[in-house]
Write a protein that binds this DNA or RNA. Structure first.
Lengths: 120, 120
DNA sequence: CTGTCAATTGAATGATTGTTCAATCATACC
DNA sequence: GGTATGATTGAACAATCATTCAATTGACAG
């Protein structure tokens, strides 16, 4: 049978491994990679994409966001929690309602950069 | 019992619905939302984040990427396919090896904007 | 042709995640 | 206090997705 166990490594690393060592050394820290992919993850969902865009236009309460997007209040609230945990949105309570808005200009710039890319 | 069916809508839309109507009108198209979230999705995975960063430094073959990230060649190849399908990387064949690099400067700018945000 | 190596691919598994439904909290009005 | 409404939360379900393992393709060397 001779079932050779593939060890999933290759004999030569590019020319001689120098490139690999150099890039490895310049690699991002685990924390940077985690933060980066987490940030992009938040923007990667269609519902959250719409919420962020809507909040970039106007301060809105949960109910209004639900109306703009045409989805349930519960679904909106769940996604707002994700955005809150990531510090992408801030909120303000008034009577029974909670008004949300973007936390700062950072996310808006990143979001617009992505939008620019999509629109070419 | 009186199990009132919650209809998940609210009586009043903000002041009187003007804000909701305005934001709704300015909303992104479905295609824009889809493209945006797909683009961010590609950047949202730690493995792909590292691959893109590595390729922003050097042109590398699959084997080298595997060596830099410390994961299997198969796993790298699967992710490269995703990146290829999204036109984020391009490749060049030489002998038995396939060398990958970033497709253009668009993604690098978007990626760096995200990195800047994470590093504050 | 045969054997070897880089890379791709498919199937299967495990983990993550978005939505729905129901219950609950909090505030305002009668 | 009791009721109605805006919002949050938890559990459950379905869908998506990244990784692993195994098999396969394509190119080169002997």
């Amino acid at each position: 049978m001779s079932v050779k166990k593939r060890d999933d490594t290759c004999a030569i690393k590019s020319v001689d491994g120098k490139k690999v060592a150099a890039v490895k050394k310049a690699m991002l820290t685990d924390e940077e990679v985690r933060d980066l992919s987490e940030t992009f993850s938040v923007l990667a969902d269609p519902t959250r994409t719409k919420i962020i865009y809507a909040l970039s236009k106007e301060e809105l309460c949960v109910c209004d966001i639900s109306g703009v997007l045409g989805i349930s209040i519960s679904a909106v609230s769940h996604q707002l929690r994700v955005l809150r945990n990531m510090r992408l949105v801030k909120f303000r309570k008034e009577a029974k309602m909670v008004f949300y808005s973007l936390d700062d200009g950072h996310i808006e710039r990143l979001f617009n950069e992505g939008l620019k890319h999509v629109r070419e």
